[in-house]
Amino acid sequence: MKKTLALLLSLLLMFSCVAALADGYEIVVVPKDESNPWFVRMKTGVDEYAAAHPEDTIYQKGTPEIDATLQYQLVMDLVAQEVDAICVVPVDLASIEPALKAAMDAGIVVIAHEGAALENVDYDIEAFNNELYGAFIMDNLAAAMGEEGLYTTMVADLTNGSHNEWADGGVKRAGEPYPGMTLLADEPRVESHDNGDIAYNVAKELFKKYPDLKGVMGTSSFDAPGIARAIEELGLSGKVFTAGTGMPGDNAALLKSGAVQYLTLWDPALAGQAMVALAQKVLNGEAVAAPLDLGVEGYGALEFKAGSDTVLEGQGWITITAENVDSFGF
């Protein structure tokens, strides 16, 4: 009896292995929702990746609206379907944890994005390290300014965590390869309160008070567009520059008019591809060690975040210019 059972079980095991081999792995990407243009863009990336990797079944499946409860249910459904890997962009960290725990208990590989504080994951991928992203914004600003001149930085609030890390990173970068760039000592950091109108008025004041000011580094997605409006109105286009985070759809007009040359961002399509690539690596039993190359642009040399062995940081930033602004769809 025992022997028969053992034989049956091993047969079953073999069969399931064969089945799995035949179909490859089933890897599902769960975004925050399906309709947000940001995640529509992510789906484009995931679909592209799936077409290039026909050996596995890869697809994105989201809820119709952003809702932590719906996302929890979706992940639980996927656990019940016994998929091989779940790549999730969590809506709410606390409420998704139980579902992710259930997935891990069932032997499913769990990869997250924008969920650095999650516990029940194999790995979490962040697009970039905050300090290095700041340095990247500075590179863009320096390029616009011709690598010389007086500049200052703008954040939403002086108490905001990531914005100030970006600004610090930018200032640090400006010191190294750009000896001609000087930080405005009287106003090294101004606030926009995440409000385009305030960014616009503050920029006007800065340019009036400091006629030598040649550049402003923005961090919040309202900063650079607001500063650009001020530059345009004051008649300083081509003399004074700004760079910073910005969404393509909101800023197409400003980029095309030349008021701002570069905006920076990370591309959700590439983030989606990086999650799937990492899931494949883990499923195939490959070693995950820094620097990790996922074969996705901007995710070629991931490093572990300091003090963490699950959070990986890439260099997944991109530059948006007048030429490519229409290609993102968000």
Partner: peptide, 15 residues
């Protein structure tokens, strides 16, 4: 006042 803090030279932290 709101639009002259920088012109007066009040540091952002004190605005």
């Amino acid at each position: 006042v709101e639009n002259s803090m920088i012109l007066i030279g009040i540091p952002t932290v004190w605005k």
